[in-house]
Amino acid sequence: MASQGTKRSYEQMETDGERQNATEIRASVGKMIDGIGRFYIQMCTELKLSDYEGRLIQNSLTIERMVLSAFDERRNKYLEEHPSAGKDPKKTGGPIYKRVDRKWMRELVLYDKEEIRRIWRQANNGDDATAGLTHMMIWHSNLNDTTYQRTRALVRTGMDPRMCSLMQGSTLPRRSGAAGAAVKGVGTMVMELIRMIKRGINDRNFWRGENGRKTRSAYERMCNILKGKFQTAAQRAMMDQVRESRNPGNAEIEDLIFLARSALILRGSVAHKSCLPACVYGPAVASGYDFEKEGYSLVGIDPFKLLQNSQVYSLIRPNENPAHKSQLVWMACNSAAFEDLRVLSFIRGTKVSPRGKLSTRGVQIASNENMDAMESSTLELRSRYWAIRTRSGGNTNQQRASAGQISVQPAFSVQRNLPFDKPTIMAAFTGNTEGRTSDMRAEIIRMMEGAKPEEMSFQGRGVFELSDERAANPIVPSFDMSNEGSYFFGDNAEEYDN
């Protein structure tokens, strides 16, 4: 993207840094990872977990959730003011799984939030270390993106479920800051804005008074975040219109849905970061690795190297396929839920299948599930090659597409044709070009129609051997075009429920 120079890199967003050079960025990201790792080690000690239990991804998720809940100030305040039966607002906890007599047992633990905050700050040299908290939120978000298709949420806001490739980060909490905003897809931002506008339509006082002023500035800020994701002048001009509207209503909703559809071809720039579970960072720190000293990046080879040398386990339900569970977590670790499966298959070195073909449910185990038949197995999170994460949407291309997802959002900077089903997408653009945004709409449609099938995206960008740390010898991959490109292809993934 041309304006790259004016933006802070995501590592800076990730670490609240002012302008830093590459070495400083690597050190501050490393410091953040160190903090998460030290916190995780301490929690495993508190909970008396064995090494194996500490490497269980379900335990990692519970521990991450506990610290996120302990620092969720708004919710904590709300819980104190609106006490609900049987919930102690000062405590947080969740299921911890232990191996007892050759069987997995679930144990519900409860801790004072104050105590968890103390352990977290102690692991982070006394700081609140917001960057580390956001990092864990993005890992949870990436896992949700890989596990669930947001059909219901899309339909509720009037969008087409086939636009799911635009929904990265749709389950990120509001408090995820600049680093969170960077990884949100165009569809996620559109959905947040539509929800806001709908509230304004239904509630006369939404934009009024002292609160209304705050609401208005939040609305304009979200519009600017979305505008910054678009790469064409016409899309940005249309966002200006939406932002400046005196009284946002149905016309703005129409414009936003139009823009979301246009992003299936004229893709937005959305950041991709490899955020790993805390149970990967903990053992690495415990083994003596100093992330701050060595430096770390979320968008280069580092996460690949770390996963190459990590042992992570997962509980497996009786009829689940461990290899499929591994694929789910591998995609989440690489922030690749909406990437082209052919690119992923090449990088991973084994075939990556669409969601609907995987015999696996989510990673988390519900409290009512029976533990008797639970097994555990090693997650295979290694890769054959590594590639640089991208934040450009890439230019655009036609490809055989599917009944489910009709476009992709690249996660890796790797040369390819970008699949999208042009006739299906263009069919949504018939007729409606009147109104105050008509010239911009016409211009956007013209650009979409001009998108050429034979153009290559990320020209000359390749993948790298894991021994090639400096990215000196790019390998331009070859793809098996007979395979499906979309992950949520004609899909039956479970729906995400809060």
Rank of each mutant, 00 (worst) to 15 (best):
G94K: 05
V363C: 00
A442N: 02
P322V: 14
F429C: 05
E369W: 11
Q12V: 00
R216K: 02
E252S: 11
L379R: 15
K7H: 11
M481C: 08
T15M: 06
I63T: 12
V312A: 06
D240E: 07
V270D: 05
T188H: 13
G394N: 08
S217L: 13
A153K: 02
S262L: 09
Q149S: 09
D302L: 04
S335P: 15
S335F: 14
S438I: 06
L466H: 03
G462M: 10
M1T: 06
M239G: 01
I57G: 00
D491A: 15
V186S: 14
T390V: 15
G288S: 04
L172Y: 10
V463Y: 08
R342W: 13
P303A: 05
G228S: 14
E192M: 10
M1P: 10
N247D: 13
A387R: 11
E18V: 01
L166T: 13
M189I: 08
W120A: 02
V155K: 00
M239N: 12
G450P: 02
W207L: 04
V155P: 07
V186M: 08
K184D: 08
V280F: 12
S359G: 15
L68Q: 06
N432K: 06
R461F: 08
K214L: 05
V242I: 03
T45Y: 09
Q231D: 10
S297P: 05
E495A: 07
G450R: 00
N144A: 01
A131K: 15
D497F: 03
C279R: 14
P303R: 03
M222V: 09
E484I: 04
S486C: 02
A332P: 04
G288V: 05
F258R: 04
R236E: 05
E375P: 07
E107Q: 13
T430L: 06
F420C: 03
V408Y: 09
D302V: 05
G490L: 11
A387S: 06
S467E: 02
D468L: 08
F291G: 06
R156G: 03
A153R: 15
T430E: 14
I316L: 08
T92K: 11
S297C: 03
S413K: 14
K98I: 01
D439I: 07
A451K: 00
S367F: 08
A2Q: 10
N334P: 07
K351Q: 09
D112A: 00
D372E: 03
N124W: 13
K325C: 11
R121L: 05
R361L: 04
T151W: 10
I316P: 08
I33D: 10
I96T: 15
D421I: 14
E465G: 13
R342Y: 06
E192R: 02
D480A: 01
P419N: 10
S392V: 06
M331N: 07
N334G: 13
A251I: 10
Y281F: 08
D101R: 08
A129F: 05
T390I: 03
N250H: 02
G17S: 12
R261I: 12
E210A: 15
E80W: 14
N397V: 01
D439M: 09
F479L: 15
V155H: 04
H135C: 09
N202L: 01
E24A: 00
K77Q: 14
E254D: 14
F39N: 04
L341C: 06
R65Y: 10
R384L: 00
Q415I: 12
Q20E: 05
K293N: 13
F464K: 09
G185T: 03
A427Y: 06
S486G: 10
R348K: 15
L133A: 05
K77M: 09
L108M: 15
A427E: 07
N473G: 01
L143V: 14
D372L: 15
A472V: 15
Y10M: 10
G349C: 08
F304W: 12
W104Q: 15
D16P: 02
D101G: 09
Y496S: 02
V280G: 14
S9M: 13
A234C: 02
Q364H: 05
D290A: 13
R102L: 15
G35S: 00
L341N: 13
E375L: 00
M66V: 14
K103N: 02
G490R: 12
S467D: 01
S274E: 10
N250P: 12
A336S: 04
L61Y: 00
K351L: 04
R243C: 14
K198D: 08
E81P: 13
S376N: 03
T232L: 02
I36E: 10
A286Q: 15
K227L: 08
G393M: 10
R261M: 12
F258N: 10
Y289M: 14
P423Q: 05
A27P: 09
P303Q: 02
P354T: 06
R199Y: 14
Y487R: 13
T151R: 05
C44S: 14
D240W: 12
E24M: 00
E449F: 08
G394F: 10
D145T: 05
G282K: 13
P173L: 08
Q311F: 07
N417M: 00
Y487T: 11
L276D: 12
K87F: 12
S165C: 04
M32L: 08
F489N: 10
N397W: 14
I347R: 09
E73F: 15
N432C: 05
I33Y: 07
G158K: 10
M239S: 04
A332M: 06
C223R: 12
M196D: 09
F230H: 10
E465S: 10
A403Q: 03
N498P: 02
E24C: 06
T45A: 06
V476A: 13
K184G: 01
S69D: 10
